[in-house]
Design a protein around this nucleic acid. Structure first.
Lengths: 353, 353
DNA sequence: CTGTTAGCGCTTTCAC
DNA sequence: GTGAAAGCGCTAACAG
C-alpha cells in the first residue's frame, strides 16, 4: 500500500520517500545541529539552547513540515498529553454537554481529550476502560450511567484501580457510590425542590417516568420526588432513560388511563420531551390538561412547546470540573456535590384549586 | 508525584513498584517464554506459536492484568489503530449524529475513534489537524463547517496533503470543493425539492434564514431555494448557523416587519427551531400564521411543536460512510453524493389560496 | 550550551 | 516454533 513518489515537487535535494515521515533527526540534520539539541529546541520549556540554534531548528522544522510523533513521545516520556472521557452516547445532549465542558477544561490544560462511547453497555464500558488504560492517558473520566449493582461493577473498579496504581487519575461523574473522586449532582435535593415547587403550583397527583431500576441517577431523582409526594407504585413507570423511553412510558400510562394524574414528572428532559410527544399524539395538550416536568435543563428544554419546567444541572461545568479535579493532586475529599436549580416554565402553569 | 507502594496486597514475590506498569516483558517471564514469543502470543493473527505456550502467556497476561502499551505499539508499528474525526461542536446534533455514525464504523473496523472539536474556528481547525497528524492515526475525517474561501484554507489543504503523503487517508464531509475524497450531501437538490414542495402547498413568499456567507453548506442550500423562488435580498437573513443564530435572524425579520412573507425557510433545523421560538416570543404561532421549514431532520425536528417540515439528511450514515471510505483503498472517485428526502410535517400546513 | 547515548515498550526480521 | 537482537522516534541523563 505504500506508494513511492519519485520526487517531492519543489522538494529538497535529498529525495524523501513517500510514507517516510519527517523525524526529528531530519530536522536536526537540516538545521545542522545534533539530535538532542533539536529535541530541546522544539520544547518551549527548555531554556538551555542558544537563540540562534533554536531558530535554525524551528525554521528547519517549519520547512520540513515536521510534527512530533506523539506516540513516540509518549513511550519515551512514559505518559501522554491526553485525558480520556467515557460517555454513554454522543448524541444525547446530557453527555455531549458534559463532553463539551470536559473538552474545554482539557484544552485549557493543554491536553487532548479523547472520547469513548459505551452505548450504555456495562460490558462494553469495561472493555473500553481496559483499552483506554493501554492508551496511557493522564486521567480517565467516566460518566457512564453506572448501575447501582451491575455485574461488571467489581471488574470495572478493579480496572480503574490498577489504572490509578500505575499513576493514572480517575474521576467519576454522578456515581458517588464508587471509591473514586466524583463529581455528583444533587439529584435528590434537586428533584425534591422541583416536587415542592410543583406542589406549590397546585399539582396533587404526579406520575413519575423513571429510568431503569438500577440506574443510580434515576433512583436518586425518584427519591427526591417521593420526599414530597406519596407515590403510588402504579404511578411510577420505568422505561429507558431516553426520549423514546419517555414516549413509551407515557403511552403505557395513557393506555392504562390517566385517572386523576395532573402532572407528569419525567426524571430527565429527554424523557419529558418524549412524553410530551406521546401526550400530543393522544390528543392531550401538555401544559393545559396536564403538567409536565423534566430534569437537566438541556438547551432544548426552552425551545419545546410548552417550554419545559425542569431542574437545571450545570452539565458543562461538571464536565470541566471533572477533568480539573483529575488534573489536580488534591486528596480525594469525597464526592464533590454540584447544586441544581429549579426552573419553572410553561409546562406547569399554576393549577386552579 | 510517583508514590511508591510498599507491596501489592496479595501481590507476587517480586514486589512491583507502583507506577511501574506491567510490560510484555513481565508477562513473558511469568509465562516462562521469550519476549518475542509473548508478543506473538498476544496477537491473534500469529499462528506461529504452540497452543500450550500461547495459553500460558495469555494466562500470565490475565493474571498480571496486562494491557499492551498502545503508544509503544504505535511507534514500533509505525501506525496506530485509530481514526480521527474533526467536528465543529460536540453539542450540535448535526455533528454528534455524524460522530455517532463515524464511531460505529470505526468500531466495526476494530479501530478507535478520537474526536477533536474546532468550535468552528478555522485557525483552531488547522492547529488540530496538525496535532492530529502527530497522533499518526490511520485516517483523518474532517467535517468542519469549511468555508468556501477561508484564509486558512490553503494551509489546511497543505497539512492534509502531507498527511496523505505520509500514508494517512483523508476524507471530508460536506466540503466537495476540496481536493480530497468527500462525502457530500445533495444540499442544493434537497432544498430545491423542499422549496418545490412548499410551493405546492401554496406558499408564495419565503424568507430564508441562512448561515454565514462563506459557508458552503449554507450557500448550496440557499441556491436550491433560489432555484424555485425569486428571492428578494431583503428576504435572506444571514446569521450564525446555530439555534441562537436562527432566533436572532428571525427577530431581525420581525422587527423589520414580516410584510407578505408566508413561510420561513431556515437552512438548518437548529436555526428553524430558534426561529420558531422567536416567532412564538413575538406572539406569532409558527405553522398557523406563518410556515416554517428546516433542513437536516434532526431527532428533535419531530418533537418540536409544530413538528418541523425539513429535509432528511442521513447523518449517521454519512459519518459511517466517511470512515469506511477512509479505510478503503478505493481510488478517489470524486465526491460521493448522499441523497436527501423532503419530510413535510405540521409546520407547513397547506395554505388556502 | 551541545553532543552522545542509553533507554521507553513493542514489533519484526533473521537465525536456530 | 522459538529466541536474540535490531530498530521505531523520541526523551533525558550524562559527559564535555
Amino acid at each position: 500500500m505504500r506508494c513511492v513518489v519519485t520526487d517531492i515537487p519543489g522538494g529538497e535535494a535529498k529525495g524523501r520517500k513517500a510514507g517516510s515521515r519527517v523525524t526529528l533527526h531530519d530536522v536536526a540534520r537540516e538545521a545542522g545541529v545534533s539530535y538532542a539539541t533539536a529535541s530541546r529546541a522544539v520544547h518551549p520549556g527548555t531554556r538551555k539552547v542558544k537563540e540562534a540554534a533554536r531558530n535554525r531548528v524551528l525554521a528547519a522544522a517549519a520547512k520540513l513540515n515536521y510534527t512530533p510523533n506523539l506516540p513516540a513521545q509518549a513511550v519515551a516520556r512514559g505518559s501522554t498529553m491526553t485525558v480520556a472521557l467515557v460517555v454513554g452516547d454522543v448524541v444525547d445532549p446530557y453527555f455531549s454537554s458534559l463532553a463539551a465542558g470536559a473538552r474545554r477544561a482539557a484544552d485549557d490544560a493543554g491536553l487532548t481529550l479523547t472520547m469513548a462511547v459505551t452505548g450504555g453497555d456495562p460490558a462494553r464500558e469495561l472493555e473500553i476502560v481496559r483499552h483506554l488504560r493501554g492508551q496511557r492517558p493522564q486521567a480517565i473520566v467516566v460518566t457512564g450511567s453506572r448501575l447501582t449493582a451491575g455485574l461488571h461493577q467489581d471488574e470495572l473498579i478493579d480496572e480503574l484501580r490498577t489504572f490509578e496504581r500505575t499513576g493514572g487519575r480517575v474521576v467519576l461523574i454522578s456515581q458517588p457510590e464508587l471509591p473514586f473522586p466524583t463529581i455528583a449532582l444533587q439529584n435528590r435535593d434537586g428533584s425534591r425542590r422541583l416536587a415542592a415547587a410543583i406542589k406549590r403550583l397546585g399539582y396533587r397527583r404526579p406520575a413519575v417516568l423513571r429510568g431503569p431500576l438500577q440506574q443510580r441517577t434515576s433512583q436518586e431523582r425518584l427519591d427526591g420526588v417521593a420526599d414530597e409526594y406519596e407515590l403510588a407504585p402504579a404511578h411510577v413507570i420505568e422505561a429507558a432513560f431516553t426520549r423514546d423511553g419517555g414516549y413509551a412510558a407515557m403511552r403505557t400510562l395513557i393506555e392504562r388511563g390517566l385517572g386523576d394524574i395532573d402532572v407528569i414528572v419525567a426524571l430527565n428532559d429527554v424523557m419529558a420531551i418524549g412524553a410530551m410527544s406521546a401526550l400530543r399524539d393522544a390528543g392531550i395538550v401538555p401544559g393545559r390538561q396536564i403538567g409536565v416536568a423534566g430534569f437537566d435543563d438541556l438547551p432544548t428544554a426552552s425551545d419545546v412547546i410548552p417550554t419545559l419546567t425542569t431542574v437545571a444541572a450545570p452539565l458543562t461545568v461538571m464536565g470541566a470540573r471533572a477533568v480539573q479535579l483529575a488534573l489536580t493532586d488534591a486528596a480525594t475529599s469525597g464526592p464533590e456535590k454540584v447544586t441544581t436549580e429549579v426552573v419553572i416554565r410553561d409546562s406547569t402553569p399554576p393549577r386552579p384549586a
